[in-house]
Write a protein that binds this DNA or RNA. Structure first.
Lengths: 341, 341
DNA sequence: AGTGGTCGCTAAACTGATTTAGCAGAGCAT
DNA sequence: ATGCTCTGCTAAATCAGTTTAGCGACCACT
């Protein structure tokens, strides 16, 4: 890989100058007193030789690698990971940086290994990402340098980027209220574990809080709240069936995520009910299936790509103290309608 | 990030030996004549100081970085990317390597940038990945070192790892034949562009070929073939509606991917037909929705994680000449039944 | 003439590892 | 006593950059 590359010494020789001069010119150093002609000659020589600096040599001296570590608990499981990475990748490229990716798989040994691997490579900073929004404790070893938490918070008060789930909760409830839904709104996806243990989820509690807040302000009570052990389609399906077996049918359903909503759709379809004419559905995440469903599912989007960006910005750009609570835009789709009758 | 790290010189000093000795001991060099006691002292010193070699310094000398570049066209778009990366990550870790990820977004400028970024960092090899199985031309710049194509082939005959779509096609057709389906099998997802242009897709042609082969062997003809401009749910939906409007109703449907199948399910549901009692459905990819559908969708899995692994193996382990055509396992699920009546 | 300052540039040190070449001392044979 | 080999180890070069310290020429001023 890349032997025969021209070195700085080659450039200097060709330009008839010293390595020092060549280095200074190519790095655009201010305050150097090299002549315009010297600049010319160096640039020309570099151009002609196709010179590219050896970053290993450079970082040996400068202790900078233009490399960011992206350490996450689980890359693959969720399809959102890709967006998080892509956002980070884009922002990193704009700043001439590159991403070193490792995965801990939630395993302490792997984590240890990942941390060592990136520290050994002298990365300029670490983005420590969780695939589900939650609280976590970062290994002390990385605290020696800049760290940003992505989709996570920590007790240490490190800078972090998380989605505004509470705002999304309010937006979701408000959207229904505005359509005229009142006391026949049901909620699918309550989950004590997720709501009470911040190390499992921060989203569940925040979403719930946002929903309740908006409803309270409108003086509306939930018709029903269904608990689900997981947020998967089958649980949404079961919950929806449960709701439909009760005397009072809801006019609208809020699902804690799109997979639950997908399950709810299935149960509604089987029951011969139509979305949104019989029942409106709204949800969280904006998983791709939300747009694929018939009718398309209204939901609040997890802005993963933007979060990835934000994390890089927080890490590399100093002086950005902007809020790292990233808004979750509401996607209004066809699953919403005013209550029937 | 990581100042104050002990250097080799520190270790040597503490062990009362030279840097040379320390280096040799720590690298486990054979044929050195250093005493057992010297070994002891070096190990002890390294341990006590928590010594970790500076990889920038090492690679400056050795031109090895224990880093692999993972260059892909698009990371985010498909949820499979995560699995590809995870497989590569796992295999890389086992070999003490780390992954540098970049994205070209199919844009020549970005590609140029990505290539330079990784070459400047002296990576030991490049995995050039495509998110849809296809043929591509790799930029000549990276040919200076080891390259493996992942989910892609190239005219240069570079080593490559691709899924066995043709085998999957045979498996899918065979599964239906074994259940007794004969001349009422319809196919959804024909697409000239994908079938004819290898730079767009290799999968379409291979899948079609596998299906035809198996059917021909059984002397069976397809009842119908529906063309789709894209392989998205809405196209599957439209195609399925088209099929149902015809006089002869199919007993089974083969969809070219799971998203088409999802659309087909929607059309079947609306038409009041039941899978698999009225119509069996089988497909390709094993997208997560396949397991979420009701009934769960039989499909052939794209073994992305394993492909990612394989790519790293091909890149780093010499002497592995095993086939890089990775089998796509058939997931038998509830969408299959013998033809009705 | 001596002093001081600026200009335009360079030699050499430095980063932290690997690797080559070779040295001092012991043991042995001649 | 001399030469030879073997053992156990080290000095110094090397990788490709960045950075510090400073050199010689020229000019202006007193």
């Amino acid at each position: 890989m890349g032997r025969n590359r021209a070195t700085l010494a080659d450039v200097a020789r060709r330009a008839g100058l010293s390595k020092t001069a060549a280095s200074m010119v190519l790095n655009g150093r201010e305050g150097t007193r090299l002549s315009a002609e010297a600049h010319q000659r160096v640039f020309a020589a570099a151009e002609e030789l196709g010179y590219r600096p050896n970053l290993a040599a450079r970082s040996l001296r400068t202790r900078k690698t233009a490399t960011i570590a992206f350490v996450s608990d689980i890359v693959a499981t969720t399809r959102f990971a890709g967006d998080l990475i892509r956002g980070a990748l884009d922002a990193a490229r704009e700043r001439d940086h590159v991403l070193l990716i490792t995965e801990t798989q939630g395993d302490a040994t792997f984590e240890q290994y990942a941390i060592e691997a990136v520290l050994d490579r002298q990365v300029d900073g670490v983005i420590y990402a969780a695939m589900a929004t939650r609280r976590l404790t970062v290994p002390p070893a990385i605290l020696g340098g800049p760290v940003v938490l992505l989709n996570a918070t920590s007790p240490d008060g490190l800078p972090s980027v998380v989605p505004d789930d509470e705002g999304a909760g309010r937006a979701v409830a408000t959207a229904l209220l505005e359509l005229g839904h009142r006391d026949a709104i049901a909620l699918i996806g309550r989950n004590r574990l997720k709501e009470d243990d911040p190390e499992v989820s921060l989203a569940a509690r925040a979403r719930l809080h946002g929903i309740r807040q908006a409803l309270e302000e409108a003086d509306v009570n939930l018709l029903a709240e269904c608990f689900c052990t997981e947020w998967l389609p089958e649980h949404g399906y079961a919950a929806m069936r449960g709701l439909l077996s009760k005397p009072k049918r809801p006019s609208a359903i809020i699902c804690m995520n799109d997979r639950l909503a997908f399950g709810a759709y299935q149960a509604l379809g089987e029951a011969g009910l139509t979305v949104p004419d019989d029942i409106s559905v709204i949800s969280f995440d904006d998983d791709p299936i939300a747009a694929w469903l018939r009718p398309s599912l209204a939901t609040t989007a997890l802005p993963h790509e933007q979060m990835g960006r934000r994390a890089v910005e927080l890490l590399l750009d100093d002086g950005v103290a902007e809020p790292a609570l990233v808004p979750m835009p509401l996607r209004r789709r066809r699953s919403l309608a005013p209550p029937a009758g």
